[in-house]
Design a binder for these strands. Structure first.
Lengths: 243, 243
DNA sequence: TGGCGTCTTTAACTTTTGTTGGAACCGCCA
DNA sequence: TGGCGGTTCCAACAAAAGTTAAAGACGCCA
């Protein structure tokens, strides 16, 4: 992938939630990024590690997760191309969770040093990145609500719609279909249920003619029922820069 | 309360997680803050509202929460004196959740305009506040894990220990005792369980000689068992500025 | 192409949690 | 001081979710 295309994905996404000055776009376009390939199911940064660079997803899907003493794992968020899942490591140097790939991924790394300098040069970019971490935080809040208050089928529907909303922005939704490359085990880890129960829920939604999930691909069967079940309000994604 | 004491609480807390320059302390001490009293159980800012100021808790306990269509409420975090629970509203102007008091509270309000100017004058303070919102975010991640993966008794113990760790910093822990002024209904809302089940869990922990909870006061009976149950690792609070 | 490993699917059973309804307790204040 | 409203507490039953175990599907690669 050409170097320009890498930055384009980032800029496109940032534009959704913040207004960017032309000069700041040029700054971002000049950012030194080192690109590396990662296989599926591989740790990028681990809980407890000290990060010295941030990771821009160029291609592929990643997740952030935490594992507790009992060995259970909770997935905290799902990440798609154009996102910087570990931007927080810039100021919270020791990781408090894992970042790992779901699918084979192309990742671009930007050193903390470079980013710090950029912030000093351009307060506008600093604000934009700050805002980005705040939206990240808003998504965690909604994730808490999802896991804490919604019945399992609604949890799944909600995670699916959130993912779809975000994929749509980067042009990755094809009609009623989009990628969600998680195994049922991982879906369970995201929703706070077991894999067996995740399977039950998926079956139920298929039987009720709401959504289908086949080999990492979501196919919406009844958009009306799907939305109603998910109880989704996109306000928490803060996609409008004016608000 | 004298105006100095208000700022002192904030500065004391910020010092825990960030190094502050002397000149920045003077900036904070000069901050115009308008103080107002709030009764217990009162909304400070509501989901959907546009905030124009941030709220510093001078005295009292507050919570952030979200209510879903079905009417169920999820408590996202508990806040104590010295914290600014809605700092995020500086860049995410439309609230995506509620902030309300638990107990009668003294709150200090700082206008967004004032804070924006302060950021421009002092990048150090901007970084410190940014870091503060990132720690907030880290706490949400741990809250997701708590609600998603731990059995109900461990959830309660974990929330209790997190609160105790934070209260200790501001000198509000007295031996094995500290305040946690939530009703059982609210505890349920924090843990993602019903009030009835919250009651069962509290009873269980008392019977097992682990902790007691009486009229908003926590009394630890067996510190060893308490810690073991909670599975608490304070790393996510990022309390060391050097890390 | 056959076999191996991972993922999916399902059933039977157990445990946890939710629901309903009601009694006891407690602080507040008329 | 007596009653009222909000908590706390509890029991019986229902529903949701976890556990265990095993069979089937599927993709990969030797």
């Amino acid at each position: 992938m050409p170097s320009d295309a890498i930055r384009a994905a980032l800029i496109k996404r940032l534009r959704i939630s913040s207004a960017i000055a032309e000069e700041d776009i040029r700054e971002i376009e000049a950012l030194p990024i080192s690109v590396r390939q990662y296989p599926a199911e591989t740790a990028v940064v681990r809980d407890g590690e000290r990060a010295t660079e941030c990771c821009l997803i160029v291609d592929g899907f990643c997740v952030r997760s935490k594992t507790i003493a009992s060995g259970k794992r909770q997935i905290l968020s799902i990440h798609i191309p154009g996102e910087i899942p570990d931007l927080m490591s810039l100021f919270l140097h020791v990781m408090d969770h894992d970042l790992s790939t779901l699918t084979p991924s192309t990742l671009g790394f930007i050193s903390h040093e470079t980013l710090q300098k950029l912030h000093r040069r351009s307060p506008g970019i600093a604000e934009m990145f700050w805002r980005d971490t705040l939206i990240d935080s808003a998504m965690f809040r909604e994730w808490i609500v999802n896991v804490g208050q919604r019945p399992a089928p609604a949890r799944l529907a909600h995670v699916m719609i959130e993912l779809r909303e975000r994929l749509r922005i980067i042009g990755r939704v094809d009609g009623g279909n989009f990628d969600m490359p998680l195994t049922q085990e991982q879906i369970g880890e995201a929703l706070g249920i077991t894999a067996v129960h995740a399977n039950r829920v998926i079956r139920q939604l298929r039987q009720d003619g709401i959504v289908e999930l086949n080999r990492g691909r979501v196919n919406v069967l009844d958009e009306r029922k799907f939305q109603e079940l998910a109880d989704f309000d996109n306000r928490y994604l803060h996609q409008s820069p004016t608000l």
